[in-house]
């Protein structure tokens, strides 16, 4: 009884959601988004690692390629009614494309509406990791970046030369 009484004078931890919003740290694992490169190209290269890492198998995608060899997902689907927000996909992603953001307000009356397609996932931002561009590091040539133009690369070898 005494304890209960004391609690009445404590600082309140309950907040008046939704009038008042909770403050979430930036690494909070909420809604999943697909981010973009600094040059606003799609970051996701369709490598399927997030899908493989997902313990509830709620990510499905199909990789494809544009005419210049740049890979991207043809479709990208997350079934949020299955997602457990474990963040494994983000951890697996080699390109920082998939990120969990501090947003949890996703409730729906109809479960079907929890199926997010690429258009629902892709945002116009780099998210938590600004400045990273996978293709600047990878050896694959894409439109606007030829062989030898990535970070730490020599110009392509002239295979007809025998100079030591």
């Amino acid at each position: 009884m005494w304890l209960t009484f004391l609690h009445m004078f404590r600082k309140r931890v309950t907040i008046q959601y939704p009038e008042e919003k909770a403050k979430l740290p930036p690494r909070w694992r909420g809604r999943i988004v697909l981010t973009r490169d600094p040059d606003m190209g799609e970051r996701c290269v369709g490598c399927y690692l997030c899908a493989a890492a997902c313990p509830v198998d709620c990510i499905a995608l199909q990789a494809t390629e544009d005419e210049n060899g740049r890979r991207y997902p043809e479709f990208f689907r997350i079934n949020f009614s299955r997602c457990i927000f474990c963040g494994f996909c983000e951890e697996a992603c080699p390109t920082y494309a998939i990120q969990l953001i501090p947003d949890f307000e996703m409730a729906e009356y109809n479960r079907q509406n929890l199926v997010y397609e690429k258009k629902d996932l892709l945002i116009d931002s780099q998210g938590k990791y600004p400045g990273y561009n996978y293709y600047n590091i990878a050896g694959l040539a894409i439109g606007g970046k030829d062989k030898g133009q990535a970070e730490n690369e020599e110009a392509p070898v002239d295979i007809r030369s025998l100079v030591p």
Partner: peptide, 11 residues
């Protein structure tokens, strides 16, 4: 390691 089984038909 098969992936995506709770999502591939979800659309």
């Amino acid at each position: 390691r098969y992936s995506g089984r709770t999502s591939q038909q979800a659309n």
